[in-house]
């Protein structure tokens, strides 16, 4: 009998399809684990707006009741405290990041290379979470010039673009990298250049 059954059921499902899973857009975990992520409130809002059906399944009163009833009161309290702490931490980290973004500046510098030839140096992009290498590649593509990441003596890196493209870079940055507020871009005309310009 068992053999017959074994013969009837194929070894594996014939149309094996991987499951498609929704991941939380805020904390990247599967939504049912959002409660452990530290950004619970935001995750809830996100889920409610994007996948209301999932939201109702996971965050309904019944589900929450069933989830917590298996724990002892003490354990629940501890878990709550822990979650609270985590949330505070996540909030603090976020605030800190916002502060660094507000205070940091992207500096676009025009540097004289050889009398009337210039290069443009861009620094301070890291603070906005941009990858210097990738942005350099984009500049090179956009302006069809050499564009490279170089280390500067004071530590850190800057992007050096051939030619005087400072104004264009400002526009390009504003258009393509929306994370940078306009006020945080600073154009610097290198002092050396002014001296040479008059002379």
């Amino acid at each position: 009998m068992a053999e017959v059954e074994g013969a009837e059921t194929p070894i594996g499902p014939t149309e094996p399809q991987s499951r498609h899973i929704v991941y939380c857009g805020v904390c990247s975990l599967p939504p049912e684990y959002c409660e452990f992520g530290g950004t619970v409130k935001k995750c809830q809002d996100w889920l409610q707006s994007i996948h209301p059906d999932l939201y109702n399944r996971i965050w309904s009163a019944d589900a929450l009741e069933a989830a917590t009833s298996s724990l002892s009161v003490e354990a629940r309290k501890r878990a709550e405290k822990d979650a609270h702490k985590k949330a505070l931490k996540a909030e603090a980290a976020e605030a800190k990041q916002a502060a660094t973004i507000a205070s940091s500046k992207v500096i676009i510098k025009r540097v004289e290379r050889n009398k009337r030839k210039f290069v443009t140096a861009v620094s301070g992009l890291e603070a906005f979470g941009l990858d210097n290498k990738k942005v350099a590649k984009d500049f090179g593509k956009k302006f069809a010039t050499g564009s490279s990441v170089t280390k500067i003596p004071s530590g850190g890196e800057e992007i050096v673009v051939q030619g005087d493209v400072s104004d264009e870079i400002e526009e390009f940055l504003l258009e393509n990298y929306k994370v940078i507020p306009e006020d945080n871009i600073e154009l610097v005309e290198s002092k050396v250049k002014k001296g040479s310009g008059s002379g």
Binding site: S18, A67, L71
Partner: peptide
């Protein structure tokens, strides 16, 4: 694992251990 959850040997933990 999430795509093919039934293909791996698994065990289950209780709720208190998740965090």
């Amino acid at each position: 694992v999430h795509r093919f959850p039934t293909c791996f040997p698994s065990i289950r933990i209780d709720r208190g251990a998740i965090r």
